[in-house]
Structure formats: structure tokens, C-alpha cells
Amino acid sequence: MQYLDFEKPIFELEKKISELKEFADGEKLEISSEIKILTAKLERLQREIYKKMNRWQRVKIARHPARPYTLDYIEALATDFIELHGDRGYGDDKAIVVGLATLEGRRVLFVGQQKGRDVKQRQFRNFGMCHPEGYRKALRGFQLADRFKLPIVILIDTPGAYPGIEAEERGQAEAIARNLREMCRIRVPIVVVVIGEGASGGALGIGLGDKIFMLENSWYSVISPEGCAAILWKENPQEKYETAADALRVTAQDAMGLGIVDKIIPEPLGGAHRDPGKVMDLVRKYILGALEELERIEPAELLAKRLAKYRKIGVFEIEKEN
């Protein structure tokens, strides 16, 4: 398993324990008490390191190469998945997955950005960075769901909308803007879960909904810590990622504090990839709970509530008249 820089002591100890176990098995030695001690030490170390993670470390967990991606969730949560392709105008964006599926007896539409696991897959999925046709494919899905009364489940995991020449030629800004407006006209429940990275407009472009959840170690902000550092600290941005992550307040806990997110879905110690089954069960529970609540609301009221939710976001002061 790959590990991150700050996780090194944990992995060294894990390695030591497994080596010791192997050695003991081979030599038929009885060392269970030593292993017990080391395991207790490991648990302590894990708690110490993971409970004290700073924001930048959480961003790294959100990007962990072993972290579950959109299709992993769909596979684990749903049955009868039928993937739908294409925006009917230009092409099929592989960075975004749209499809019909059954979630514990409920027929829903899934939409989510998809990252790749290996070099080839990463390129195929364009690192989860959408082009305009990706946002338009998603919109096609939303409008289909609206017409046939299927609730929508959205999984967000993107390092941003793709910044490229063709993306601009095909109207990246227009595609995102249109989705923001149209998602407020979709008359079925929309549940959004940020499962990994929620980078700016690229994330928000499929991110409007009635309930917004974030996994404990996901991040969501107006810009990535790297992007922010590059703008603010031109001299040595690499040294400022931690500072930028703190300044931007990128974590799920921050977003919750700012009133953007409805609930945080807890992750196992060390991140979702440490126990994907457990995370999937929780995500399923949260989504189903939200759908049950939202399905009881009349469409007109649902839209009014969605609008009101976004209408009140913002912090400002009113200057007193002199």
C-alpha cells in the first residue's frame, strides 16, 4: 500500500508487526504478547497522527491513489447500473460518469467525476477533469431524471474543470453556468456527496443540490491550495501549500462551519481507502436517509427550498448610515 509522507511511522510499524508475525509463524514461536504490545502501540500512533491531521494532510488523503472513486461507490451501492454516454452535441467525456442504477429498491440517476487508478486509466479519465461536454452530459442526465422522476445522486471528485484550449473553445464557462441555473429547475431530489476533491467551479458545475454531504477527509474550495499559493506567494509557492490550505479553510469541517454542508460522513482512521466497505455502508445510509426525507417534499416546495438554501449563503456587513 502506498503511504503519504506523514504516515511513514505508521507504515513502518505495520511492516514490523507483519514481519514479526511471519517470522513467528515460520519458527513456530509464541510471541503473541509482543505483537499485542506493538499493535497497541500502532493504534496509539494512528490515533496520534490521524486525529491531528492538518488541512494540507487531509487534502493529501482526499487525493490518495487508493481512495475509492465514483465507480467504486456505484458498484458497491447500486445494482443494475446502466451507464449513459455522450452530450448529444460533441462527444462523451470520460471524466464524468452518468448512469441509471437501483439503490436498495430505489431507481436513481448517478452522476460523478471519475479518476483513474493507473497511468493509462488516469489519462483515459483525464484525471477527473471535465470538458464542457462532460457538464453537458451531466445536464442531459439531470433533465432525463427530471422528466422521469428519478432522484439524483451526485458524487464529486475533481481537481477542477480542465484548463485547456479546446475546453475554452467549446465553452467551459457557459457549460458550468448553464448547469448552475438548470440544476435549480430540476424537480426531483438531488443529493450531493463530495467523496474526494471538490475543486472550484469544476466541482460546483455538477454540485447544486438539496442535501450536500462531505466525506470527513474530502476538500471543497474556490481554488486548490496549490493554485492559491501560486497566486499569492509567487516566489516559493511549493512551501506555502499548507499555509494556503489553512487560509482557504478547505476541509469538510470548515465547510460545515461556514454552513455550506449539511453533514460530514465519517471515515475510518487514516481515510476511506483503509476500510472502503465501511465507508460505502455509511455513504449508502446517508444517501438513503436524505432521499427518504426529500421524497416526501412536493416538487415546487423542493425547488423553493433549494433556492432558499443558496440564496442565504454569504457573509457581509451592512455599513451604518452616517
Partner: peptide, 12 residues
């Protein structure tokens, strides 16, 4: 940038 995710949500 200085208002983080609150600025992003103004788009919505």
C-alpha cells in the same frame, strides 16, 4: 479567493 467556498457559492 479570500472568501473561499463562500465566494464559490455566490456562483450558485
Amino acid at each position: 479567493m479570500q472568501e473561499g467556498i463562500l465566494s464559490l457559492m455566490q456562483m450558485a
